[in-house]
Design a protein around this nucleic acid. Structure first.
Length: 923
RNA sequence: AGGACUGUAGCUCAGUUGGUUAGAGCGCAUCGUUGACAUCGAUGAGGUCGGCGAUUCGAAUUCGCCCAGUCCUACCA
């Protein structure tokens, strides 16, 4: 083995072997355990959030697989309608073409070509992370079987009247020329203006002033509204306004939606271009005048002067004209929420179009109940509130998109404008008796990508066919995802799966935190603070990192800033930490917190941890390979240390198992870390050395220790494997043959997980070794504080030695002498005082290091004074508690007894300290 | 406006149903290299647990208010 752990040299080979041997497939035996991978966008690449969630999913999958469950991780990608279309369209644009030059059919086949070439980025990256999904079942939402499911769901919902078509106001992205759902619109505050406009009454009897943030929409105004009880405007209700610029007559109406307190109390109403106005228009039966084209230019419903102008140019022109006519009263600065498309960043227009909708109310009801009655549990539980809040206010879902890439809506129109929905044109003709001469054309639109994602839990299992997988893996065990897609995806899956299978899609939903940068800022390309998980695995030099972060930046100023920050934060670039260290970091950070600030320091720490495991293993192998480890037979004599480490390991197994069951990967990681480093490496390996290296220990003792070394390590590797798959399997391949395991042609990943075994715990051995540790630490303490060289052998005296202390001393003296670097150990006779010494207390026993020639009087007095000070403070607190009548009267017996013991112990310590102080002062 | 979350050592975070002498890693200080590991070891310094109040014999932990920060949903033209 190399002297330091080199992740790069082991990872690839390891992964290839696993995949080739088919270890990722469900075994077919045991309890079903299934996780659905939230399908990443096919155009996407692995970001820190993915890496985090995939680590957690893989840890769960590996854990359950090892536990013997029939474990399936269903993976795949989604077709990401808008994103994918944009990627390929951009490639065409680079060649001076648009998708219209190709036509729909050719464009779609271009996308498939692109997918075949570049659609596998993220799955390749997942392999680098060591994830173990069943790649043979990898699904893609545009595959035939999934498309078939999509069509089936659409037709069935339509037959039940749950899908309908209607002309409604939708969120229109004028760059993409498509409707988008509410969830795809981001509302951000931006600086803008409020224009106050004077609208004259038609009869010339007066005027009123309206305020607007979008003056250009006045071309489509069809009313002005006031509050019905607003006294200022009572006389105006029912009168008509002569709308400036257009000259159209529009009514003044009363509606209590209007806030009389806000602005002037008069609101211009543009039903075709504002969601609130739209509702009001419906209430009052107002005409809806659309004034925009698909590109958000002014259309022919507007006066000629403005036709063809872009909406923002039109705004300037209209404001200028209104001003010239004296209509503009004033302009104020005003911050307002501007809706922008999450893909394009374009300002979204409320726009009147024909679209398809899912009526979600009846679907939502069982989906809400499934969470209310506990069938589906959120972890942490709080997220159910977020879920309810949205589900109780759920709006019909606009599912049509004016794109070419996606599942085409299975609806056909005849020339008379009738709509027929069916699985194919033939089916439609047959069902509705439409003869061949009658032309039918299919709807041009496709479905929202999330529509197909919503079917993921059952469509990937073969639905609508009745497959064994549908029985076995629906519901899946747990969904691991971020809170940002509870609405987009989680809620919709619950609705659809309930509807079409009658079952819930998953029993638990583990909501992970969001990975942020070390300052708590969201990682984003425009901030330039993104980290690529692969760069943390492989490392990256500074220059490529800068190029990567600033590449494609449109604003040079921003790029300069990002470059500066990057150079400052990573002057040496990023080290290669390896997959296991990265995964361990993610696990260790997976607490219940909703925000996770990613700290490079921790990755480095866990890389060191990997190295620690590596070197500990190296030590174990050096002492077991080519030695008798008692794997077949041979007498084993276990030392106290052997029994102790076995005991500690059992407790660690119990802790890790509990933590894994509660999705507390941070606690699981911490237990593994603590045991490995602070118990196994710091103590047990040291304790084993005297046994292995001494000529005085018997073969049975040596065999016992070797057996414990190799077997504890072997089990520790299994315990850690779900989190750190590569290093554990690599080491295990060498370790397992030295144990009783049949380790030919296998892998740790298909070995059983370790189980807590109470018969292997040993409280006495545990107590004995803790005693030993205290003695050693006591001596080291004195060494450290007295500045005695570690190499200097010390003669130690023990005072107040009880029978139990004597027993422990006898059992551990050899190791004690070695680990504390002692010259001699002398037990003082009862009543014997001993020379002036620096002293450490272990229970009531005093460990004394005589001062002669070694210890500085003043330093030792200072040390004692410090200890006295600390004990006195604690004593005062405990004394106070015990003096409190209420405490003694009401606290449970056990608690009081504990306080009393504590006090007695402290009193004992204090008197010993005082005694020592007196002795030393007397020198 | 409504809802959720966070505030513990210089930094990143644990702290289970109230009973600890409030912990870990990193960082810091001092010392240390003859083979498991300097990606290391030993020792140490460092916290009025955001603030105020309440409940309780007892609060980092429960409740109320306040301060600071984050996020989500809905929005006023």
């Amino acid at each position: 083995m190399d002297k330091t752990f080199n992740p790069h040299s082991i990872e690839q080979a390891c992964y290839q072997a696993w995949e080739e041997k088919g270890y990722f497939k469900a075994s077919g035996t045991g309890e079903p355990y299934c996780i659905l991978l939230p399908p990443p966008n096919v155009t996407g690449s692995l970001h820190m959030g993915h890496a985090f969630q995939h680590t957690i999913m893989d840890a769960l999958i590996r854990y359950n697989r090892m536990k013997g469950n029939d474990t399936l991780w269903q993976c795949g990608t989604d077709h990401a309608g808008i994103a994918t279309q944009m990627v390929v369209e951009r490639q065409l644009n680079a060649k001076g073409l648009t998708r219209h030059d190709l036509g729909r059919e050719d464009f779609v086949s271009k996308i498939w070509e692109w997918k075949a070439e570049s659609g596998g980025t993220i799955t390749k990256q997942m392999r680098r992370l060591g994830t173990s999904p069943d790649w043979t079942r990898e699904a893609f939402t545009m595959d035939d079987d999934l498309s078939n499911a999509v069509q089936e769901v659409f037709v069935q919902l339509h037959e039940e009247g749950l899908i309908y078509r209607g002309k409604r106001l939708v969120n229109w992205d004028p760059v993409l020329h498509t409707a988008v759902s509410d969830l795809e619109v981001l509302n951000e505050e931006e600086a803008g203006f409020m224009w106050h406009l004077r609208y004259p009454l038609a009869d010339g009897s007066g005027e009123l002033v309206v305020a607007t943030t979008r003056p250009e929409t006045m071309l489509g105004d069809t009313a002005v509204a006031v509050h019905p009880e607003d006294e200022r405007y009572q006389s105006l209700i029912g009168k008509e306004i002569k709308l400036p610029l257009t000259g159209r007559l529009i009514p003044v109406i009363a509606d209590d939606y209007v806030d009389a307190e806000f602005g002037t109390g008069c609101v211009k109403i543009t039903p075709a271009h504002d969601f609130n106005d739209y509702d009001m228009g419906k209430r009052h039966d107002l005409p809806m005048i659309n004034i925009l084209t698909d590109d958000a230019k002014i259309n022919d419903n507007a006066p000629e002067a403005y036709r063809g102008l872009d909406r923002f140019d039109a705004r300037k022109q209209i404001v200028a004209d209104l001003n010239a006519q004296g209509v503009l009263v004033k302009v104020e600065d005003h911050t307002l929420k501007v809706p922008r498309g999450d893909r394009t960043g374009a300002v979204i227009e409320p726009y009147l179009t024909d679209q398809w909708y899912v009526a979600v109310e009846s679907l939502a009801k069982p989906a809400i109940e499934a969470v209310e009655n506990g069938e589906i549990k959120f972890v942490p539980e709080n997220w159910s509130k977020t879920y309810y809040q949205w589900m109780h206010n759920i709006q019909d879902w606009c599912i049509s998109r004016q794109l070419w890439w996606g599942h085409r809506i299975p609806a056909w129109y005849d020339d008379a404008g009738n709509v027929y929905v069916g699985r194919s044109e033939a089916e439609v003709r047959e069902k509705h008796n439409i003869p061949a001469p009658t032309a039918l054309r299919q709807d041009e639109d496709v479905l929202d990508t999330w529509f197909s994602s919503a079917l993921w839990p059952f469509a990937t299992m073969g639905w609508p066919d009745k497959t064994p997988e549908l029985d076995k893996f629906v519901p899946s065990s747990v969904l691991v995802t971020g809170f940002d897609i509870i609405f987009f995806w989680v809620a919709r899956m619950i609705m659809m799966t309930k509807k079409f299978t009658g079952k819930i899609p998953f029993k638990e939903i583990y909501i992970t935190g969001l990975i942020r940068d070390e300052n708590g800022d969201k990682m984003s390309k425009s901030k330039g603070n993104v980290l690529d998980p692969i760069d943390l695995i492989d490392g990256i030099e500074l220059e490529p990192l800068v190029t990567k972060r600033t590449g494609g930046m449109m604003q040079p100023k921003l790029a300069a800033k990002i470059e500066k920050n990057t150079r400052k934060q990573f002057p040496e670039g990023i080290n290669a930490y390896g997959t296991d260290a990265l995964r361990f970091t993610f696990a260790a950070m997976a607490s219940t917190s909703r925000d996770i600030n990613f700290d490079m320091g921790r990755v480095e720490g866990y890389r060191n941890f990997c190295n620690k495991i590596w070197n500990a293993s190296r030590f174990v192998l050096m002492n077991t390979e080519e030695f008798d480890t008692g794997k077949d037979c041979g007498e084993l004599s276990l030392s106290l240390a052997d029994e102790w480490i076995i005991d500690r390991f059992q407790h660690t197994v119990a802790d890790v198992t509990k933590a894994m069951g509660e999705y507390r990967f941070d606690l699981a990681a911490q237990s593994i870390y603590e045991f490995t480093w602070n118990q196994f490496c710091d103590w047990y390996l040291e304790l084993s050395k005297p046994v292995l290296q001494s000529d005085e220990t018997t073969d049975a003792e040596k065999r016992g220790t070797r057996h414990t070394l190799i077997n504890t390590l072997e089990q520790l590797l299994r315990l850690a494997h779900p989190i750190m798959p590569f290093i554990t399997d690599t080491i295990w391949q060498r370790v397992a043959p030295l144990t009783a395991i049949n380790a030919t042609d296998t892998s740790i990943m298909v070995q059983p997980f370790v189980q807590f075994d109470e018969t292997k715990t040993n409280a006495q051995a545990s107590g004995d070794i803790e005693w030993l540790k205290q003695v050693i630490v006591g001596v080291r303490n004195i060494r450290g504080e007295m500045d005695i060289a570690p190499s200097k052998a010390l003669d130690v005296l023990l005072k107040n030695v009880s029978a139990e202390d004597a027993r422990r001393l006898a059992a551990t003296q050899a190791v004690l002498t070695k680990l504390a670097r002692l010259g001699s150990v002398t037990v003082l006779e009862a009543g014997e005082k001993g020379p002036a010494s620096a002293t450490a207390l272990v229970g009531e026993m005093e460990v004394m290091i005589p001062m002669a020639g070694l210890i500085d009087k003043a330093a030792e007095l200072a040390r004692i004074a410090k200890a006295v000070d600390k004990i006195e403070k604690d004593m005062a607190r405990t004394q106070g508690k015990l003096n409190n009548q209420g405490f003694v009267a009401k606290a449970p017996e056990a608690v009081i007894a504990k306080e009393r013991d504590k006090l007695a112990d402290m009193q004992m310590q204090l008197s010993k300290l005082e005694e020592q102080k007196a002795t030393i002062e007397a020198l």
